[in-house]
Simulated scan of single mutants.
Amino acid sequence: MAPGPGHPADSPEPGPADHVTGGEAAAVRRFWSRLGLPGLVDVHTHFMPERVLHKVWDYFDALGPLTGGVEWPITYRKEEAERTTVLREFGVGAFTAMLYPHKPGMARWLNGWAADFARRTPDCLHTATLHPEPGVEAYVRDAVEAGARVFKAHVQVGAYDPADELLEPAWGLLAEARIPIVIHCGSGPAPGKHTGPDPIARVLARHPRLRLIIAHLGMPEYEEFLGLAEQYEEVRLDTTMAFTDFAEQLTPFPRRALPRLAGLGDRILLGSDFPNIPYPYIHQLQALERLGLGDAWLRAVCHDNAAQLFGLELPAGLRRPNLT
C-alpha cells in the first residue's frame, strides 16, 4: 500500500449536510494524521456490479425484513467511480469489495466481476465470495489462484448454515491458504435461521486456523463472538457500524465488555459498510475514538492490524501495534 497523503489543512468540522465534501474529507484526514498514520485500511466496504448494488439499495429503501424494519438512508449513493474517489479523498489506502450471493449460482459470476474490479482498482483488496453449492471448492480455488486476498460470506442474506457440509472443502482450502473471510454471522439487524455464534463455533471446531473476521463485531451477540476470538487466535472482528449512534440505539455494546475489546486490540479491524451507511463516514471513526481505549488501540484498529494481516506495504518507521 502506498503511503497516504500528508497532513491536511484545518477546516470546519462537517455538519449533517456536509458529507462527501472537502469538509468531511479534511475531518477524516485529521483523524488519521493525528494518530501518525499514513491513512486508513477499511476491510468492510461494498463494491459489486452496479445493478446488484442498486437492488441492495432498493431493499434498504423498502425497509426489507433483513433491515429490521429500520429506516436506512444510503449516505453515499453514488456511481462506482465517485465512490472510489470519496474513499481516496478520505485517505483510505486499501479497501475491499464485499459482495455476496443471495442464492446458488451467483458466486462464480460475482467472483469474475470482482477480479476485474481489482485489476482496475489497485487500492482494492481482491475480494471473492462463496455459497454452499456443488462446485464451491472449484470456484473458490480458482479465485485463490487468481489472486483473491479476502473472501466475503453473508450467512444472513444467503440464509445458509456456515457449517454446511458443502462448504467443508472450501473452508479447508481457505484455512490452508490463510486467506481471511469477512463473515456476517451475527443476528443483527435481524436474525436468520443460521445466524449467531453456534454455527460459527462448529466451523471453527473443524477448522481452528480459519481466518474469520466477524463482521459488525458480531452484533448483537458481541460477547459470544469476543469469546470465540479469545478461544481461536486467528479469529478477528471488524468494527462495522459498531458504537455508532445508529447501532447503539438498536443493539448497544455492553460496556462491561470493553476490557475484552481492548485486550483483543491486535485483532480488531476497521470496517465501515461504506457506502451503505445511514450517517457520514467520519462518525464511525469518532465512535471508535470516544470509547477511550487510547491512541495505540486506534492506530492498530484503523490501520496497522489490517496492514499486517494483508501484508500491505508500510512506510519506513511506522509504529507497529503495541497495546501493552
Rank of each mutant, 00 (worst) to 15 (best):
240 T>F: 05
230 E>S: 06
90 F>C: 10
83 R>Y: 09
12 P>K: 11
320 R>V: 03
254 P>Q: 05
310 F>M: 01
139 Y>A: 08
231 Q>I: 04
164 D>M: 07
234 E>P: 00
150 V>F: 01
169 P>L: 13
234 E>D: 11
252 P>A: 01
320 R>D: 04
169 P>M: 13
251 T>S: 06
227 G>K: 05
251 T>M: 11
7 H>R: 13
96 T>L: 11
249 Q>V: 06
143 A>E: 10
129 T>W: 06
204 L>Y: 05
101 P>G: 10
199 P>K: 06
258 L>S: 02
207 H>Y: 14
76 Y>E: 07
74 I>K: 15
143 A>Q: 10
295 D>S: 15
253 F>T: 00
84 T>S: 02
296 A>K: 14
46 H>L: 11
252 P>T: 01
51 R>A: 09
223 E>R: 07
305 N>R: 09
301 V>R: 05
189 P>W: 13
164 D>W: 08
285 L>I: 08
127 T>V: 06
20 V>W: 14
307 A>I: 04
315 P>S: 10
105 G>F: 03
273 D>E: 13
237 L>I: 04
172 G>H: 10
93 G>Q: 09
286 Q>A: 15
212 L>M: 10
304 D>N: 13
80 E>F: 12
1 M>C: 09
72 W>K: 14
12 P>S: 12
190 A>E: 11
296 A>G: 11
262 A>M: 02
39 G>S: 02
19 H>W: 14
307 A>L: 07
143 A>T: 10
273 D>L: 11
236 R>M: 14
193 K>R: 15
22 G>L: 10
312 L>F: 09
200 I>S: 00
14 P>I: 15
86 V>Y: 12
223 E>M: 00
201 A>G: 03
108 R>K: 14
34 R>I: 06
27 A>F: 08
